[in-house]
Amino acid sequence: MSLPVSAATHVLVVEDDPHLAAGVMENLRAEGYEVTSAGDGRQALAWLTEHACTLIVLDVMLPGVDGFALCRTLREQGNSTPVLFLTARGDPADRVRGLEAGGDDYLAKPFHLQEFLLRVRAIVRRWEWYRSASATAATAVLRFGGNEVDFRAFRARAWNGESQELTEKEAMILKVLAEHAGQIVSREDLLERVWGYDVFPSTRTVDNFILRLRKRFEKDPANPRHFLTVWGVGYRFLSEGEA
């Protein structure tokens, strides 16, 4: 149906319903993904301590540890594997909870197969882009205004010597901006490159992330020299800093 995905793309499906798990796995396999399944949170955590994967498809209502808690645990352990939540509760409050727990996307049951596959593909693509964009020694590290960002380790040393842990979203935004240094990047472009199309309701989210990046890396966050706002359009990143 679509282009085959790269060979090493491995998806972990954490779902306690055997029919749903089987259906999801068969379809992912048909798309060329390698798939492993786990019936509950404990199994998933055990598998993840020894293996790595490109994406976790995670049911929220699991016996024992629920999906949100599992995702939070992973993030606390420093595991930044993207998570796509599947849940029977599709209300906005629940969506927000999922994203707060560190999820990348959220799909309410019952879902459309094609939409599910598209979303999986979108997340995998975003991460493949991020990984390949940070693959060489030259692209893995960004230096600007006395700051040094290591995209592979999600770590940075700020101009004042403070060491910083970046979230995957912060790192991705920085990566997109750095790739287009000197050019204007719109909020919509940032949303789509980093989150996918319709996960967050507004572009305000992007603004909040830019504020966080300024706090981390600008000498005077109120008068930014690297992360500049282009009113009504978006943002421009300058690695040299504005004179």
Partner: peptide
């Protein structure tokens, strides 16, 4: 109850769409 129903419904929809798609 609605949560309990959504899982078999999701499974049904998935199976049907798999049949249709593939």
């Amino acid at each position: 109850v609605s949560h309990q129903f959504k899982t078999p419904l999701a499974s049904l929809q998935l199976s049907l769409e798999t049949l249709a798609l593939r």
